[in-house]
């Protein structure tokens, strides 16, 4: 009896101490974790919007379009998604451009990247790959300068088709197309919602 009681007491104390320590650790770490994420986002947004000093967050509802040639995805129900759009402002508070995050499945997993539009000239400023799981040495080249830089300065009215106005990465067509398809559809959505009219 006393032995099993001791077992219960020891286990309870262990679990309570552990819970206590962890909740303190979590509290302490959480501030830093959130600050990291905000700082990281801030850095890339200001990076893709040259001239911007600050930015404000706009929410945009988009319905991801299903590419017609992609039969495999056609059964998936279209999901309503909120993608954040960031409006970059210069020091006088005037709009310099819009930045937005694109997510599109590639070859190995979801590709997440951020793109910036200069709304004065309606051209792309640049894209930056945030996350991808593409094959190292092949699809991973979407994150390298030669592929990314061809988007800088492109008009947002361009077709964004691999083989036409965009050079794909040889051996990694799926990865290249994931970027251009995602970019094309999201630009249209973003401009429809937040672009200057007229």
């Amino acid at each position: 009896m006393s032995n099993s009681l001791r077992m219960v007491i020891v286990l309870t104390i262990t679990a309570m101490l552990s819970g206590l320590v962890l909740s303190y650790a979590y509290e302490a770490a959480n501030t830093y974790i959130q600050r990291n994420e905000e700082a990281k986002l801030r850095l890339v947004i200001l990076d893709v919007l040259p001239g911007a000093e600050t930015y404000e967050t706009l929410a945009s509802k988009t319905q991801p379009e299903i590419p017609e040639d992609d039969v495999t995805l056609s059964e998936a129900p279209p999901t309503q998604q909120l993608i954040p759009v960031y409006r970059g402002l210069d020091k006088n508070g005037k709009e310099v451009g819009l930045a937005f995050i694109v997510e599109n499945p590639g070859y190995g997993g979801l590709i997440r990247f951020i793109a910036g539009i200069d709304t004065r000239s309606n051209t792309l400023t640049q894209i930056q790959i945030l996350e991808h799981k593409e094959t190292p040495g092949l699809g991973s080249k979407i994150a390298d300068a030669p592929f990314r830089e061809q988007f800088s300065g492109k008009s947002i009215a361009d077709p964004f088709v691999v083989g036409q106005d965009v050079d794909g990465i040889s051996g990694a067509t799926v990865s290249s197309k994931a970027v251009t398809d995602g970019l094309r559809t999201t630009i249209q959505e973003v401009m429809k919602r937040h672009g200057k009219r007229g």
């Binding site: 070859y107 190995g108 094959t135």
Partner: peptide, 8 residues
């Protein structure tokens, strides 16, 4: 060789 067999 199975990579890319299914869209992820």
């Amino acid at each position: 060789g199975f990579a890319g067999l299914v869209p992820m």
